[in-house]
Structure formats: C-alpha cells, structure tokens
Design a protein around this nucleic acid. Structure first.
Lengths: 207, 207
DNA sequence: AATATAAGCGGGGTAAAGTCCGTTTAGTTG
DNA sequence: CAACTAAACGGACTTTACCCCGCTTATATT
C-alpha cells in the first residue's frame, strides 16, 4: 500500500532491469491470456512462467487488476494518438458531434474486442478507473468546451457522457454471453444509440 | 443414478430454518458494518458471529457481494414503493421530466448515504448488476415510452440514462474521499447536473 | 575502481473467498 | 407416527491475492 512517495520533481528513471521485467511480464501475461483466458492469469503462475518472484510482480503492478490495466493502456496509447492527431472524423478537423460519435464508435469496437481484459481490469477495489478513462474525460471536456452549449457544469456533463458510453458496454459484457446477440451486432447497436444520444444533446445548441 | 427430475414450475417455498438464518445473517452483517465498516464483514467472521457454518453463508448469498446486494435491495424495495405509488413528483402524477429529476435526486441521496455498501456490492465478477438497477431501468423505460421523444432505440436510451446517473456516483465514491468535497455538496452537484442533462434531452421533444 | 544507496528482487507467510461432501433436519406422504 | 427426501447445514480444504522483509544489484558519485 505504501507508495515510495518521492516528494516531487524526482521521477528517478526506471531502472534497466525493472523495465526489462515489466515488459517481460506483460508479454507473458498476454501469452497466458491467449492460452487459457484471463482467469488463467494468476499471480503465482505469471511469476513462475516469467521466471520471476511473486513479489516482483506485485511491485510492478500493485494488484492483479493492475496488470490488465497496463495491458489496456498499451492499446489505449495508440488510440490516443489517433484521437489527438489522426485523420478526421476521429482526429481534429471535424465538428464536435462528428468527433464524439466517431470516438464512441471506435471505443466500443475496442472494448468489444478486448472484452475480457476490460472486465478483468476492474475487479477489486481498484480505486482509479484506469488512466484510460481519464483520457476519455479530458477529450470530452475539450470537445464540450469547444462546442458552445450553454451548459452549467461542463465537467459533470463530460463525466455523464463518459458513463453513458462505458456503462452500457460494461452491462453488455457482464451479461451472459452465451445466448446474447453476437458482439458485432451488439456493438453496432450500442454505437447507434450513442450517436443518437450525442446528436440529441447537441440539437438544443443548434437551435 | 436416478435423477430427481422435477420438471419445472415448482419454486418450493423457503424452508423455515433457511429463512430464519437468512434474516439473522443480514442483521448481523448490518451490525458488523456499523462497527467496523464494510471491510470488516468477512465471510468467516460473519458466519462465526451469527453462530452458523461458513457453508451456510455461501449457500444463502452465493458470494460476498451477494450479501451487500441483499442489504441494498431491502432498502430499494421501500424506495420502489415510493416510486410506484408515492406522492409526486417522485410518484405518479407529475410529468416525465419532473419524475426523472426527482428519481435522480432521491437515488443520489440514497447512494451517497450507503456509499460503502454500494461499493462492496459490486466487487467480483458479480454478473447481474443487482436487481435494483433493473428496477431503475424498468422505470426509465416506462417514462421514456410515455414521453414521446422520437427516439430510435428507447431501450438503449434507458440504459444510457441509467449509466449517466450511476456512473458519476461510482466515480465519486471510488475517488479518495479524504480531500474531496463533502458528500452533501457532491450530491447536490451531481443532482443538478442530472437535472440539467434530463432537461436538455427532453428539450428537443418540447420544440 | 571503490563505495554508497535507493531500487529492485524473491519467495515464504497470511487471510479471506469459495468449494466439497458427509451429516442433520424440516416438511411431506401414506 | 414412521419412513422418506430434498433442502439446509457445517467446517475442513483449496486456491489466490497480497504482504513482509532480508538480500541483491544497478547506478550515481568521488
């Protein structure tokens, strides 16, 4: 629980062996997931299969969920680049409504693909809902600020939108997946609903 | 090898001892929460303090989260009555916008009060997001159906609204509560934002 | 190169969730 | 009321996440 807590200003670059092991662990984790699914990634097994001690695994990731968050964030980083400097409508150059709907579409596709990782990433009292969510929020705030709806509390609206996007996804991926609609179709439906919501919200501004 | 094969349709009422123990466990759990917070409610301790075996606890609630869900649902039942047949604006008699905002206000207050139980109720791969959430969805669907926005997929909108209401709450209650705004104020802010969102959504219909 | 030290490492230890299965009992049937 | 059966019970057992802390090593400093 105690974090090292270097007062501040001293990031103290990651040591070479630490970095090597971190990458190693992530690679092995991915490998194990491909084999036996997320459930098969136990801390002991991961440590052993990576040829490291259990303590090391925890030092690197803090918690089991931490591993999955890290996996997710690797991907998220690529995504972020697209959002910040890729081609429209996802990247800059399109209007807020287009960018928001595009964002939703891509994010939904992403989570539907990485369903089990996403699930595993939020199990315990994980606290922070992944830095990744924060990225979504930052982006939403930016877009909302730009589009001038006369909203009282843009910060809260960003959070609500984020929830409206992620919530249904989580609901979907937590429901029995055996008899449910196939992911592709569910994804399409979620994306359409998202577009509907965004357009409806912005319609009031266009009056 | 003879299979019992009760065809179906026979719920087989709860046995008297089972009922007694179920109520007992809930009472003791509440007691323990008042003492040492949600974290102090371990399955072993609960079993012992109730004078029962651990197996019994699991038979009754299936999972640790199950206990907290059960606690929450006890409350939710009272709430449901208010919604279905209480006085306006929460109960019938007011317009959809008023009812939705009232619903949000009360629900937020409820969750802010029961913060730790709510948190504890959603920890593991709990699967079903609590029957309670379903109640919210049923209600939202009803109100959305009544108010005739020309929405393509009312079902999805209900889910999104539910998420927009609950998501920010969860975010709030999972963030460090030591330095954050006091619950009362946070609650007010969430409620205002919720009202804003609902009014904005319905504005397009009122044109 | 020698030294100092913060960071990293390992793996046994603990606690708590959840499973198993043999025993007990409430409720039913003739 | 005696036999019967499905449900409930208990508690030992297993599996994991996560902690602790003495030992090792990379890296900065002189």
């Amino acid at each position: 629980m105690d974090r090292p807590v270097v007062p501040l200003g001293k990031p103290r670059a990651e040591r070479a062996d630490a970095r090597r092991n971190r990458l190693r662990l992530l690679a092995v984790a991915r490998e194990m997931m491909d084999d036996g699914g997320a459930a098969s990634v136990t801390m002991d097994a991961l440590a052993e299969r990576a040829g490291l001690g259990k303590g090391t695994v925890f030092r690197r990731f803090g918690t089991r969920a931490g591993i999955f968050k890290a996996l997710l964030e690797e991907e998220a980083h690529r995504f972020q680049e697209l959002v910040l400097s890729g081609p429209p409508p996802l990247g800059p150059g399109a209007g807020p409504v287009e960018r928001l709907t595009a964002y939703g579409r891509v994010r939904i596709a992403f989570l539907v693909d990485n369903l089990d990782v996403a699930q595993a990433a939020m199990e315990p009292g994980a606290g922070h809902p992944a830095a990744e969510v924060d990225l979504t929020l930052v982006h939403f705030r930016m877009l909302l600020g730009r589009a001038d709806l006369g909203v009282r509390d843009p910060e809260s609206l960003a959070v609500q939108l984020g929830a409206a996007l992620e919530g249904p996804l989580l609901l979907y991926l937590s429901s029995s997946r055996t008899t449910e609609p196939p992911p592709a179709e569910a994804g399409r439906r979620l994306a359409d609903a998202w577009q509907d919501l965004v357009e409806r919200l912005f319609a009031t501004a266009a009056d």
